[in-house]
Design a protein around this nucleic acid. Structure first.
Lengths: 112, 112
DNA sequence: TGCACATATGAGCAGATGTTCATGTATCTT
DNA sequence: AAGATACATGAACATCTGCTCATATGTGCA
C-alpha cells in the first residue's frame, strides 16, 4: 500500500533525489577530503594542524575543506583552548567509504 | 610480519589511494550521472536516447556523460544497428549507490 | 595589555567541469 | 546513392572548485 503511483518495477530517481546523492558523493570526490574523512574515521578525533600534516596540505586549504565537510554535516568541530578538534558527524559515511575502499582498493582485479 | 613499517593501528590512505577513491566518487558526483547509473541498474540496459529522456538532458550532453562513465570502466557500450546500448560494467557501483540511497534518501532523520 | 599560536575567512586566480552548437561517423531505408 | 536516424566528438564558453595569500578571530601566556 503506497501513496505515490509507481509506473513500473524500475523506480526512478527524481532530479532532486539525484542532486542530494550527488552532493554527498561530491564531498568524497576530492583526494584531500577523502584523506581527511578516512583519517577522522581511523583516529576518532584530530586537530586541524594534524589533519593538514596528514593530508600534506596547508592549514588554510585544510580549513577550507573542513568547512565544506562541516557545512554538509559530515563532520563537527569542537574547540578546546586554541585547538579545534574535528570528528565524524555523519555515521553513514563510514560504510560508504568502507565499501569503496574494499572494492576499489583491496580487490584489484575484478572491478567490473 | 610485514614489510612496510606502520606507525600505528590507524592505517593511512596514501595519496594515490585517495586519488583512486576520489575519482570513483567523482563519477557519482553529478546528478545527471547518478540518474544514468541508477536507471541502468534498474533497467539493465538502455539506449542513449532513452537515457537522455530519463535524465532530461540533450542527447549530446548525455553522450558526453556516458563517455566519462565508459572511460572509467563504469559502463560499457554495445552497438545494435544504429542504436548503442549501455549497461553497467562495474559490479561494485550497485552496492555503493544502494548504500547511499538507503542512508541519504529513505532514512531521513538520522543522517548524523 | 601585548604577543604568539591555532584556526577561520574572504578575495582573487588558475584549472577543472558540464553544457551547447556544429560537425563527424555509422547504420538503415528507399 | 541519397537522405534520415542515432550517436559521438571537438571547440567554445560559462560556471564551479580548490588553492594561495592576506587578514581576521579566538585563546593562552608573559
Amino acid at each position: 500500500m503506497y501513496l505515490v503511483p509507481m509506473d513500473d518495477p524500475a523506480r526512478r530517481l527524481t532530479r532532486s533525489d539525484a542532486e542530494s546523492l550527488a552532493a554527498r558523493f561530491k564531498l568524497l570526490a576530492d583526494p584531500g577530503r577523502v584523506q581527511i574523512v578516512y583519517a577522522l574515521l581511523e583516529s576518532g578525533e584530530l586537530r586541524v594542524g594534524d589533519i593538514a600534516r596528514i593530508v600534506g596540505a596547508s592549514e588554510s586549504a585544510t580549513s577550507h575543506q573542513l568547512r565544506q565537510l562541516r557545512m554538509a554535516g559530515l563532520v563537527n568541530a569542537n574547540r578546546t583552548g586554541r585547538e579545534v578538534h574535528y570528528r565524524i558527524a555523519d555515521i553513514h559515511v563510514r560504510l560508504l567509504l568502507d565499501v569503496a575502499v574494499e572494492h576499489y582498493l583491496h580487490d584489484h582485479g575484478d572491478h567490473r
